[in-house]
Design a protein around this nucleic acid. Structure first.
Lengths: 131, 131
DNA sequence: TTGGTTGTACGAAAGTCTTAGTATTAAATG
DNA sequence: CATTTAATACTAAGACTTTCGTACAACCAA
């Protein structure tokens, strides 16, 4: 017997849509569709289907205004970022987030300023814990 | 006309397999199968199929020894980690890897030691650049 | 030699994902 | 009111993923 699976993660296209919803806070099918990348040529009905499925999966909620649905993220971007990083850390970095940071800091070309900001963040974090 | 897609990313199960290949350097179907998590109950033929597909996708190469294939990763773990982080940064962190580190440092319950290691890493990185 | 063991090759079933068409309903406009 | 417009509901096709069974070949032991 096959499990329901119910992955708590967004698929590729769902993330694309959710990113726009996060950006605008809420929106209709039309709103989201209009914000997709220029080259992206997606039928209106496809977009509607995707949002309907996202509601089934409880990634968004909807509220009807007149005959139109307005969709809201049911999950904050922050929270989803954390969940995703946690998953990635477990699956590809031996469950050690520090490994992830190491790889990031070594590979991505982060500006010196970005690096310093992060260090400041760490300092703050470490002194908090010392209290 | 549909594109070939050829996603350069491993699927869930492929990552599971690749993780073991990375750990042991190389191995047969049996080697990998034996290393999977205890609860994981996968038929030998399934494992063989997965590795064969991974070879088609060029994630691994194989070399025949007697009647048995020995599989080798065609992609270093480091490189795959980088690729994955880069992709995630673009899709979920506005293309700003520093956002990713910030979220990690704020959310995950990293030990104080881990945090200090990361700070040390940053210090090293920053002084390098100063030279 | 003959049968059991171990391996590869192939095919297929079931599930999910992505996309879009058709049908229907509601709103707006002349 | 009649017709065009815009939205939702449903269905389905095609691709990919995951899993395993069947068929077949090679090897080894009694």
């Amino acid at each position: 017997m096959r499990q329901k699976k119910k992955s708590e993660f967004l698929t590729e296209v769902e993330l694309e849509f959710m990113t726009e919803l996060w950006a605008i806070g809420q929106g209709t099918v039309r709103d989201v569709l209009d914000r997709l990348a220029p080259g992206r040529d997606l039928a209106y009905t496809s977009a509607a289907t995707i949002l309907r499925i996202m509601e089934q999966k409880e990634f968004v909620t909807s509220e009807k205004q007149g005959k139109t649905f307005i969709y809201h993220p049911a999950l904050a971007k922050d929270a989803y970022q954390s969940k995703t990083l946690n998953d990635l850390s477990n699956k590809l970095f031996d469950g050690t987030p520090a490994n992830m940071v190491a790889r990031l800091v070594n590979d991505q070309d982060m500006s010196e300023q970005a690096l310093e900001e992060i260090r400041a963040l760490l300092d703050r974090r470490l002194t908090e814990n010392d209290s």
